[in-house]
Design a binder for these strands. Structure first.
Lengths: 237, 237
DNA sequence: CCTGGTTATTCTCACTCCGAGATTTACTCG
DNA sequence: CGAGTAAATCTCGGAGTGAGAATAACCAGG
């Protein structure tokens, strides 16, 4: 850190990759831009860092403001910063991106100050402005990895959930099928991952089956042992 | 991302947490500040993002310039961004920090434009400027975690190394003792982690023992299965 | 009400992996 | 040469895993 005399003017924005699961697919929240550049195309919710505002605070604000979502995300964490000199044609912009997880929420309402916002399946996105496609990809990969060793999946679920619902979250985010029996054994054997509420669902599944027991998120911060994805040869080398 | 009309002036700096192992202890490179604020106290090498310069590029430049180290680090990656409004008393500064790993290097030479720089054991650091102590702590924790599932430890070693040297790296970074026999079995059983050069050390250890086989880093990007730290109860909840 | 299909939960079994300890072998030092 | 040290390998009991099966509860439709 040197003297402040000469430094290139840089703007700092905060962008948010908000993920949820709808309809058995992983979705990300994007908004339609109404200003140049990229007016009319889709982008991550985000904006300039306010004066006196912490980075995480700005991320939460942008998410609430631009998405029109009232509910708080269940979890938000810093994803990374993107500073390619050419990433914004107007001027030098460094984006500090955040990753948020939310249970399935209603469609965002378009408010007065709210651009058109909506959930889109991450594997079928329209072209995104700036380097936002890259940021989404990084966020999805982070989410996939974190499901393995943290109780993050519970952030996609409601206050209470069944083991099958939790399994569906894993299957959706990872894009793989999991063995129901082994998953069940594994989840219940990890201390602090979930705790039984004592209740069950009101009815069986829509296509039959017994009532499932309900659980809520436990107090573990790490899964021990972890729930590992099926081996992905291509990822190793 | 909105219009550029009004945004608070923000400066972006890039700071580097460079780690190495010397003398069986984990060390971080720090420099002595010669300007206010915190003149005379220690800080991470870093500085302002240059115009037209990518973030990672700036990190490599700062490390080379301020440390006076000629050699390139074996690995460098983004650690995170720090933007507390009060972290710098002069003005609003967001720091994008990078984490670098290097094999044991000679002491940095103090050049003309080079502040006093030196390696310090991370568990015995002087007070650091700004929030740099926090950044170092985050970097060390990241390094510890990454040793588990990536071949990062080889970045701390030279071009060739023995299994014992690799084990010493793990023991030093994790601060634990490892079972030599099991570690040996594990390392050689992970595909692509290390590959034998065919050679051995010239002599046995300083206190005896046979010549050890030499290995170089393999082509794996992930360790499968991972080398897990001994269970840390306190980390889970 | 009875039947077939569906799902939650538990169990079995063979296999792999792991930690702890012991063994064998090669080398240094005095 | 003998004691001590370290590299590399092996053993063994326990824990964890994937695949499959068994049991039981529940829905929908006849």
């Amino acid at each position: 850190m040197e003297d402040f005399g000469l430094y290139a003017p840089v703007a700092v924005t905060v962008d948010v990759v908000a993920l949820t699961i709808r309809d058995r697919r992983l979705h990300v929240l994007i908004v339609e831009r109404d200003a140049e550049p990229y007016a009319g195309s889709w982008a991550l919710p985000g904006g300039f860092l306010g004066p006196g505002e912490d980075l995480a605070e700005a991320a939460r604000r942008e998410l609430a403001e631009e998405s029109g979502l009232g509910a708080r995300p269940a979890h938000i964490e810093q994803l990374g910063s993107y500073g390619d000199p050419a990433r914004d044609p107007r001027m030098r912009v460094v984006s500090v991106s955040y990753l948020a997880f939310a249970p399935d929420l209603p469609d965002p309402r378009a408010g007065a100050d709210t651009a058109t916002a909506g959930w889109h399946a991450v594997d079928d996105l329209p072209p995104l402005a700036f380097d936002h496609a890259r940021i989404v990809a990084d966020g999805v990969e982070r989410a996939r990895a974190k499901l393995e060793y943290t109780p993050l999946a519970t952030a996609f679920a409601g206050a209470t959930f069944t083991v099958s619902e939790l399994r569906l979250i894993y299957e959706t985010v990872w894009g793989t099928r999991l063995h129901a029996g082994n998953f069940h054994r594994k989840v219940l054997s990890v201390p602090g991952f979930v705790e039984a509420t004592g209740g069950t669902t009101e009815t069986g599944g829509t296509r039959g089956g017994p009532r499932a027991r309900l659980y809520r998120a436990g107090d573990a911060r790490l899964l021990h042992p972890p729930l590992l994805r099926p081996a992905r040869e291509e990822a190793i080398r």
